[in-house]
Simulated assay, not measured.
Amino acid sequence: MLTLEQAVTIQILHQQGKSIKAITRELGVSRNTVRKYLRQNTTPQYQRIQPRISILDPYKPYLLQRVNAAHPEWIPAVVLYQEILRLGYPGKIRILRVYIATFI
């Protein structure tokens, strides 16, 4: 699949009177690809994918509660990691450290 910029470039070059063969040489794509994008009446639109769910998401309320409870003090990520491991967290500590860093 071409980028939106490439698809628009194909349309513009075609409107300027360039042949399919000239467009393929200029952009480095196949003739069938150029034909496909010329047949489309609209420019392709990017579709947003569903945001990925983190394996840390089920434990975030607990972590937020723990951080807020110890607010003037700081709980090390290693301690929080050990606590959520007991709750069934399957991930690594690096994900937790990145999340905890947002509270600083």
Rank of each mutant, 00 (worst) to 15 (best):
V98A: 08
L56M: 02
T43K: 07
I104R: 10
N32E: 08
P58E: 04
I23H: 06
I95T: 15
S30M: 03
I20D: 06
I75F: 03
V8A: 12
N41H: 12
I53E: 10
E26H: 08
Q82W: 01
P76R: 11
Q6L: 10
A69C: 01
Y59V: 03
D57V: 05
K18H: 14
L56I: 08
R94H: 12
S30G: 15
Y81V: 02
T43Y: 09
P51F: 03
K21H: 04
Q16W: 09
R52S: 10
P44Q: 10
I23K: 06
K60W: 01
E5G: 04
N32T: 10
Q47V: 12
L63P: 05
L85M: 12
Q65F: 05
G28C: 03
I20F: 01
L87I: 06
N32M: 12
R97A: 01
H71I: 08
Q65D: 07
A101M: 05
L85P: 00
Q82C: 06
T42I: 09
D57G: 03
D57K: 11
I23C: 10
G28S: 04
M1I: 06
R86V: 12
T43R: 02
L85C: 13
I10E: 03
R86P: 00
R35D: 03
R52N: 07
I100G: 00
L87M: 15
L80P: 04
Y46K: 11
A70P: 00
V79G: 00
Q40N: 11
L85T: 10
P61F: 11
Q11P: 01
N41W: 00
I100S: 00
Q45H: 13
T24A: 15
W74F: 05
Q16S: 10
S54E: 08
V67H: 08
P44K: 07
R97K: 11
V8S: 13
A7N: 08
Q47W: 07
Q65E: 11
V67L: 14
F103L: 13
R86W: 02
A70Y: 05
L2N: 10
L80V: 03
R39Q: 15
A7L: 00
G17T: 04
G88H: 11
R86S: 14
Q50K: 15
Y81P: 02
R52D: 03
V79C: 04
E73D: 09
L2K: 06
W74C: 04
Y59I: 02
I49G: 14
S54N: 10
Y99A: 07
H71C: 02
Y81R: 07
E83R: 13
E83D: 13
Y81N: 03
L56Y: 04
I75M: 11
Y99N: 02
V8D: 06
G28A: 06
Q15E: 13
Q15F: 10
I10L: 09
P61L: 02
Q6T: 11
L87W: 09
K21G: 02
I53H: 11
I84R: 08
L64H: 09
L96T: 10
Y59C: 05
P90W: 05
I53D: 05
V34G: 06
I23V: 12
I93G: 05
A69L: 10
L2V: 14
R66P: 00
Q65L: 02
L80K: 01
